[in-house]
Design a protein around this nucleic acid. Sequence first.
DNA 1: AGTACGATTGGCT
DNA 2: GCCAATCGTACTT
Length: 200
Amino acid sequence: MPRPTTAKLTGSFYRRPAVELARALLGKRFTRIVEGERLSGMIVETEAYLGEGDDAAHSARGKTERNATMFGEAGKLYVYFTYGAHHCLNVVAPGAGDAALIRAVEPLEGIDTMARNRFGEPATSEKDRRRLADGPGKLCQAYGVDRRHDGVDLAGDEIFLEREVRRGFEIVTTTRVGISKSSELPLRFYIKDNQYVSKR
DNA sequence: AGTACGATTGGCT
DNA sequence: GCCAATCGTACTT
């Protein structure tokens, strides 16, 4: 038997409810290949957004041009632009308007490129490396992901997820960051004690 | 056509 | 801890 040539996660990985998907993303490798270079990091923080009973979700008031991807196929990337400056990326879950926001990764490959994308120069200090992708907007900037990538299929060969970097960690559950509605719902998840999580 | 508001970030008090 | 920046989107007039 030839061993698998890729650790890429397949379509079935994404066919689970948004909360389960958000939790399952933790510890996986998020990878983008740009001009032949691998940019990758371990996902350390996520949030779930629900199509029903969640007023914080972009999908809460129905399908629009902006959020249409959230109502499409599971396993696609939903990328949106906000605050006139930042992009955020989600993995679409099954259902109608369900998704998991990736909030932070621990950079693993292509760190100098990520640093140039973020700061215009390679990262030097450990402190700089920690700030590369410890937030949803920073993560998109580090990977060079923007609205052009909205709707990209994660089963494709540019942006995808790979099997876990780590297992056996403890998952902390909290309320979500930066929302005013449905702020009481426990839909944020992160790897306990990981230094690359956006907020303690 | 006008307006209100962000699933954020970075800088300053 | 507080707050301004900045502009696309959705919704109102």
